[in-house]
Amino acid sequence: MNTQEVAKVNNKYQLGFWVYLMTDCLLFGSLFATYAVLRGATYGGPTEADIFEMPFVLAETLILLTSTFVCGLGLVAAKAGKQTWTIILFGLTMLLGIAFLAMELSEFSKLIGEGFSWQRSAFLSAFFVLVGTHGAHILAGLIWVVVMLVRVTQRGLTPNNLRRLSLFALFWHFLDVIWIFIFTVVYLMGVAK
């Protein structure tokens, strides 16, 4: 394929992926709406202020933001054709993503250990599913980046791999945006009351 054809194909995938991200946005929108309705429905269980530990969540947030920053650098390296740097930076992205996910899971298991699982109240159901859906997306992203690391090592920075890396970067940024909303709507507004 010549560069013009590559650009045409990329263009198609870019639009398709953006549209997919918007549908995902609506999925989260539905979950946010549900959370907003159910946040007060604690049924005698804990409220938001009782269970959220802000320093811990802030650390989680900073790790995820750093991971996205590194991911952006990785894409710059990939576009410059620097394969080793690409692998290092996307590898770092992955490690930070794993750290984020581990922290989220530890928060979940701590809550469950205290008897505050999703079965306790509608508020907790909405909390676990909203935050957990984001976590599941992170997991999907981690699988994606692992596959890409293998492929880039095997086949180098081909036009196809470059496209896939740039779509991954879009996805990772998108998850960052969603997390900012979760951080604000769920955590900050939760403890502010």
Partner: peptide, 30 residues
């Protein structure tokens, strides 16, 4: 529209599978 359906069916099935309380008539569900 379809992402809303996906989310809604997902929540209904979680109510049935793992005991969440999105749409139940007790535990604050709506």
């Amino acid at each position: 529209a379809f992402p809303i359906l996906t989310a809604t069916l997902g929540m209904l099935s979680l109510d049935r599978l793992i005991g969440t309380h999105f749409f139940t008539s007790d535990f604050g569900g709506n």
